[in-house]
Amino acid sequence: MRWCPLTRWTSVTSADVRWIAVLVIALDTSTPAVTAGLVDLDEGSPRVLAERVTINPRAHGELLMPQLVDVMEEAGRGFADVDAIVAGIGPGPFTGLRVGLATAAALGQACDVPVHPVCSLDAIAAAAEVTGPLLVATDARRKETYWAVYDGATRVDGPHVACPADVPTSGCAVAAGELAEAVGLDAVEPRFPTPAGLVAAAALDADPEPLVPLYLRRPDAEEPGKRKSVLTR
């Protein structure tokens, strides 16, 4: 594993030098985009060596790993070279979301590297070139939206799940994410999490938080009511 001092790509005082991983796999399956990328932090600022993004809400499980293999081949790197993994933890539709998280967790264990969770909306915000207040809105299905509000790169509200009409847009001029227009704001890029955004939003210099998905909804499950009679009168 290779490491570089954090000071090389962000400004901290020399007394505060910490070391961070330099070759990072970024994965996200919280939206219809199946996202895989390899990011190098060695050159002062994050550099995307290769990435694959496919829009297909029904095939996260089929597409993610072949895409990642393509990424590694294009970048000419092996899994043994990887120093850390960054994974979007949603919020997002559950079945697809779990593909990215199961993949990230297994890669982390197999490569013996840390896996850093990132709120997928934070990754979108980090990649949006917006300095003022920003709303990020993605598709939660069932006619609802996942949303969060940012001031620069800092999340100031959310993530939440709500009807588009109930998303508070006052104070934000623009929105990023797949449902940017649906909440009635001017849309800016990106629509989906990007490898660069995921890595930018990750706290790579800290111990990783537990890799727990942001479901924001409880499972649909009903306790059985009283049994119906089988006797006809």
Binding site: G61, L64, M65, R98, A102, T103, A106, L107, A110
Partner: peptide, 10 residues
């Protein structure tokens, strides 16, 4: 399946 693909590939 997703986990197994990742273990096997890595």
């Amino acid at each position: 399946v997703a986990s197994a693909k990742a273990y096997a590939t890595a």
